[in-house]
């Protein structure tokens, strides 16, 4: 554990809390892509199957449990409790175009060819693109509420901080995982356009509005 990974994990946790809090307080999931949330639930489910087979630390077990539980809670809020507020007309990204290539790539490029390992690899590939339905939704409506922007910023920061963690781990332990690194870089690059808008607009008190 180092400061980059810890702050990365905290950014991830904060993102989830921001999202759940926003939906709960406003009693609405307007502007939130249910499809991205379904993909995240799929990511955590396939990655944290090792929760029952291997133990790393109390911290790891606790965080995995929290990410799993909150991802299903988010889906419940969007598709059941506040279903009437779900903006499905703007949430039209075809997620099979992300799931199937991620699965194919995981079958082809992995560290070991076994069930848990392929699912872990699939989760890494899928996570790198899981935000696309949400970004697509923002681009389709041309705007995002500030709170949604804060959520996206925290969520994007998490993998960017993990990249610093990987650099640090390589320098100090010689540890590196090429699959996680390449996917993590792809994931962070997808947020770059959003980061730019966030810093130049949202932080200056303006609404995140895309040029027409």
């Amino acid at each position: 554990m180092n400061i980059f990974r810890l702050t990365g994990d905290l950014a991830h946790l904060i993102a989830i809390i921001i999202l759940l809090h926003k939906i709960w307080k406003s009693r609405s999931c307007a502007g939130i892509s249910g499809k991205s949330q379904v993909l995240f639930a799929l990511v955590y489910t396939t990655r944290y199957l090792d929760l029952v087979t291997s133990y790393v630390s109390i911290y790891n077990t606790f965080m995995k449990f929290v990410f799993l539980a909150t991802s299903y809670a988010t889906i419940y809020l969007i598709y059941v409790k506040f279903k009437a507020t779900y903006d499905h007309n703007h949430d039209t990204f075809r997620i099979e175009f992300l799931i199937l290539p991620s699965l194919a790539l995981a079958l082809l490029i992995n560290h070991y060819f076994n069930f848990l390992e392929v699912l872990w690899t699939f989760s890494i590939y899928l996570e790198s693109v899981a935000i696309l339905p949400q970004l697509f939704m923002v681009s389709k409506t041309g705007e995002a509420e500030s709170i949604t922007s804060h959520y996206l910023f925290a969520l994007g920061s998490y993998r960017a901080l993990y990249i610093l963690n990987w650099i640090y781990r390589y320098a100090t332990e010689g540890h590196y995982d090429l699959i996680a690194i390449v996917a993590g870089v792809v994931q962070t690059v997808l947020y770059c356009d959003f980061f730019y808008l966030y810093i130049t607009k949202v932080l200056k008190g303006k609404k995140l509005q895309l040029p027409a």
Binding site: F67, H111, D177
Partner: peptide, 10 residues
């Protein structure tokens, strides 16, 4: 166990 060695992150 190789799985455990590598995947110690979230």
């Amino acid at each position: 166990s190789k799985h455990l060695e590598r995947h110690d992150e979230l």
